[in-house]
């Protein structure tokens, strides 16, 4: 159970964030996105705003998973600094995957296509990570996929920070850097494809 709890938190954050891009399709139908894009605010700032909102929403997942984990007897670490670290991780993780979701939404432009693609992407992202089993027992090819999957680094850092005696594979600082870099790259790409939603 201790091994699973951080993976379940990462999964909750991922599943909510990966569908957040649909809001841009609603905003397109409502016309709001045209006004946003016709304003002088830089596109990357608009994308970052959306990422931040997904991050803030992810904090509710932290509360729920902590509560359930505590009820199930998971040996959680409630010290302030690790707790803060978990919140920041959930925020960056949600920002990262919601921005990925935004890119997909800008490219597919319809709810039906987006929902289909969202489902297709969620499972590989989740299963090709260390969320439910350690990378060490994976076949070699899956290990490569897991190592380029940002979710792996989120789960790894969550294991280090959430649990009293969490076993993790990488350095927590390295996990943060990988996740932050992935988010920055995705925000830049999203800033470039965002105007496509108006065409």
């Amino acid at each position: 159970m201790d091994f699973m709890a951080p993976g379940i938190l990462a999964q909750s954050v991922l599943f909510i964030a990966i569908f957040s891009g649909i809001t841009i399709i609603w905003e397109r139908d409502l016309g709001i996105v045209f006004k946003f894009l016709a304003s002088p605010t830089p596109r990357t700032a608009l994308v970052l705003g959306k990422a931040l909102s997904a991050g803030i929403r992810a904090l509710s997942q932290v509360v729920i998973i902590y509560l359930l984990s505590w009820l199930l007897g998971v040996a959680l670490d409630f010290s302030p600094l690790p707790l803060l670290g978990v919140c920041v991780l959930a925020l960056i993780g949600a920002a990262c995957f919601s921005t990925f979701s935004l890119i997909i939404a800008c490219l597919v432009k319809t709810r039906e296509r987006f929902m289909g693609i969202g489902q297709i992407l969620t499972m590989p992202l989740f299963f090709a990570s260390n969320a439910i089993y350690p990378i060490a027992i994976m076949p070699a090819w899956l290990r490569i996929v897991a190592r380029v999957n940002p979710l792996t680094y989120e789960v790894d850092a969550l294991r280090a920070l959430m649990l009293q005696n969490g076993v993790h594979g990488f350095n927590v600082g390295f996990d943060f850097i990988v996740l932050a870099l992935a988010t920055i790259v995705l925000v830049i790409v999203a800033g470039l494809v965002y105007p496509r939603v108006a065409t």
């Binding site: 139908d29 409502l30 016309g31 709001i32 045209f34 006004k35 016709a38 304003s39 002088p40 830089p42």
Partner: peptide, 17 residues
Amino acid sequence: AAVRRIFGYVPQALSAD
């Protein structure tokens, strides 16, 4: 970017929240 500071735009679709 400079052009966007000069105009205001009301699209056809109802866009207030």
